[in-house]
């Protein structure tokens, strides 16, 4: 049985990013952590196509009772994890509401239209402005940079899960992370993933004073 009361049932999480950022793996790991706590979790994945370059979104619905639609209705997301900052804005515009929280990676992945000079990529100030306009609380994290320091930028997704655990909105336990991640990686990669998880968690804990803005 579910071991912690959810703020909402279902509690809705969107992990968004760009193909190749490990979005799907992140959603599986997070969902399996919650299944271990006795919850029913439904994951829906949305991608234009499986190639890199397109937006990729995972919808997670956490419930004490049942499966839910794999697509979250508009205006009903509780927390957004943006592996890429402008993707967070895209999600907030469609699924946000006055209570929504967002954790956003700072590392930009420029769309090919921007690379080709046909579109502009917003500045970090513009991104912050729009995010804060639409979210009740926002955290910006150097997840990719931290991951590069660990030796592999893909670990950015795990840092973001660690950061989510630091928010305390869901019963996310390090022990569950360990078991859940082992379904996706070989055992010799466990330590580096645990390290990434801890870094994410610390980033949030250290900045607790400055949350909510």
């Amino acid at each position: 049985m579910a071991s912690m009361q959810l703020a909402q049932d279902p509690y809705n999480i969107i992990i968004t990013g760009v193909g190749g950022q490990g979005n799907v793996m992140a959603s599986r790991v997070l969902a399996n952590m919650l299944v271990r706590r006795g919850f029913n979790v439904t994951i829906g994945e949305t991608f234009g196509a499986s190639q890199r370059g397109g937006s990729v979104m995972s919808h997670l619905r956490v419930s004490a009772t049942s499966s839910w639609s794999p697509q979250i209705p508009r205006g009903r997301v509780d927390v957004v994890i943006a592996l890429e900052p402008t993707e967070g804005i895209r999600v907030l515009k469609d699924y946000g509401n006055p209570q929504v929280k967002i954790l956003s990676n700072k590392r930009a992945i420029r769309p090919v239209g921007v690379i080709a000079g046909e579109l502009d990529y917003p500045s970090m100030e513009e991104i912050r402005g729009s995010v804060q306009e639409l979210a009740s609380s926002a955290w910006f994290i150097d997840a990719t940079d931290e991951a590069v320091k660990l030796g592999n930028p893909i670990l950015g997704n795990i840092i973001m899960i660690g950061a989510l655990s630091g928010l305390g909105v869901l019963p996310l336990e390090r022990e569950d992370f360990k078991e859940a991640i082992l379904r996706s990686i070989p055992r010799d990669k466990l330590d580096i993933n645990l390290k990434a998880y801890d870094i994410g968690r610390q980033i949030i804990k250290q900045n607790e004073d400055s949350t909510g803005n």
């Binding site: 397109g54 402008t86 090919v112």
Partner: peptide, 14 residues
């Protein structure tokens, strides 16, 4: 919030 804050992502080869 202008759509330019989340520029469109055209599909592309990896």
């Amino acid at each position: 919030v202008p759509t330019s804050r989340a520029p469109a992502r055209e599909l592309t080869f990896c």
